[in-house]
Nucleic acid binder design. Sequence first.
DNA 1: AATAAAAATGCAAACGTTTTCATTTTGGTT
DNA 2: AACCAAAATGAAAACGTTTGCATTTTTATT
Lengths: 347, 347
Amino acid sequence: MTKRTRSRKGAPGIVEVAARAGVSPATVSRFFNDPDVVRPPTKKRIEQAAAELGYIRDRMASAMHNRFSGTIGLIVPTIDNAIFAEMVDAFSSQLLTHDRTMLIAAHGYDLQREVGIVRSLLERRIDGIALVGLDHDAVPLNMLAQRDVPVISIWNFSETSAIPCIGADNFEAGRLVTDHLIERGHSDICFIFAETETNDRARARKAGALHAVTSSGSSVPDHRIFTCPYNIGAAKELAAQILEADRPSAVVCGNDVISHGVLYACQKLKVDVPGALSIVGIGDFRGSADMEPGLTTVRLPARQIGALAADALVGMNETGFPPRPFHLKVELNFMARGSVANFRPRL
Amino acid sequence: MTKRTRSRKGAPGIVEVAARAGVSPATVSRFFNDPDVVRPPTKKRIEQAAAELGYIRDRMASAMHNRFSGTIGLIVPTIDNAIFAEMVDAFSSQLLTHDRTMLIAAHGYDLQREVGIVRSLLERRIDGIALVGLDHDAVPLNMLAQRDVPVISIWNFSETSAIPCIGADNFEAGRLVTDHLIERGHSDICFIFAETETNDRARARKAGALHAVTSSGSSVPDHRIFTCPYNIGAAKELAAQILEADRPSAVVCGNDVISHGVLYACQKLKVDVPGALSIVGIGDFRGSADMEPGLTTVRLPARQIGALAADALVGMNETGFPPRPFHLKVELNFMARGSVANFRPRL
DNA sequence: AATAAAAATGCAAACGTTTTCATTTTGGTT
DNA sequence: AACCAAAATGAAAACGTTTGCATTTTTATT
């Protein structure tokens, strides 16, 4: 075993501060938890002593008592991707606002890895955790419940989820973009979605999209449905194949990353968008508005979801958990841009 | 003051496990720190007891002793952007590999906010921290030094930096892409870089780029140098202005995000790339390879930087800090793709 | 089989805070 | 000036683990 004891060199503790300020450690502790509980002169002395010593509180020691660590966990499928970037950023910033910090990890769309990650975060005594999506293994959920750690599901909305959720109606999102295509006269539509087995967001979107066409009276042949990971290159390649075979008039993409790939494939093959092919995405990621043509998509208020989730989790801690489970649906915003052609004259 | 004591409901501690396994808490502790230090039968009993009770160690309590919390900090300018996504992901994954977790925060290119963040991470007793870039306020650096917390600067390389660094030679990157343009006969080149005041990476890149042209014997007029945030929309807008005025034959972009914006502006204004304008970027982000035309850029091994940084920080903990400061330069990879025209016949 | 050396285990005192309870101080009221 | 309630402070016992030291058990050696 390696000797792993870091020298305590220059790290003053609460007792050093207390000594220097001429008060008891208890008072210093109180001061840091609520400055107004000590009298102004005392306050001043403690402030000065702490500053002179360069004191930094040890939240781990304090977490041992009040059972709050001041860190909140966030588990996403991936960070290496535009999909959750805005949400993660907003979540983190909002947490900073509450004097909390974010512990984040990615499971790479592997729900099984999620259990190990949850365990690891629990060991760090997180005060709450946000999970992307509604599908989760029971094991981590139980571990969290057993310890009364607030959990919240984000990104996808469901009226009936067992745990609180803040998210968008992904079914609706899929329906929205597909309806847009149908309204504009498209009838030969192709669908590219992510694997739906372990991804409830993609599942809901796909269901919504297909529902839109069936409820318009038509149906979707199997050869118009494709699966593709959230990866520009893969999408571009797949789209190239689709374009060279029997070309549809429009394609619905499971998210904007796929749309980007499809658009690039069109540019490569000199297929005019929207003239020869219309494209819609879901998400409205960075860049979608600025591509040429601009991508018609539906905006998920990612920052809002992140901020709300942060607030909710902090709130559950402060007001005393649990609140009754809530289900918050955020607004979808359809963004009509240039990537869709209108085959049907305006009425 | 609100009452903030979470019920200890169902959270067994090391002593409960010990009792059930019929050993002392000390043995259980030892088992979790190094399973092979207890004899097989004992080991088995502890494992079973822990499993039955659903025990999860409390790293905060253990951090009070050995002074290691198992979390490592990472401060980036932004997460809401493609720039650092791959690096962050690799850093985090590599940390997981070492049974550590990542505490991440963004300062939004505001070095002053960095001090508050460092403090906040220090309160959480991080075992090490990675900072992007070489420019940092002295205050946080002192706080870290005083507590013997390993720091490492990532992304930018310097042979002489005071703190260890792992990064790319950004000057070289700027020079590389500009040289490529010059070699291909471009003489009227425009430069778009991020604000260099608080961003040493951008500063180095810009210096490298300008150096390339001066050392080729020409010079860069002021009206060919622009500043632009790392934002596709802003870059697109700026590029549109540039394209409509006195158009250069090529543009060097401070990073790929800017390149993307410039390319979209060209597509919007029907300016042929690379026919009428050549574009080079720096970074080789997601999507750069798949755009049409593919973006000529220089690949920074972001994942490698992230993984190396994680390894280094963990290593500093395990082998006993400090190692003598090291400076690790990662390879740049020039990616010639379609966005640059050749004005000069091949020799 | 006896013994010495080595390995495994237990005991109890830490680690740096918070918090309960008791005590002192303050400030307002007669 | 004396008194009382309220506010501020202090003393000491926690929190859940690790670890130095002492003790027991195992293993190797004779």
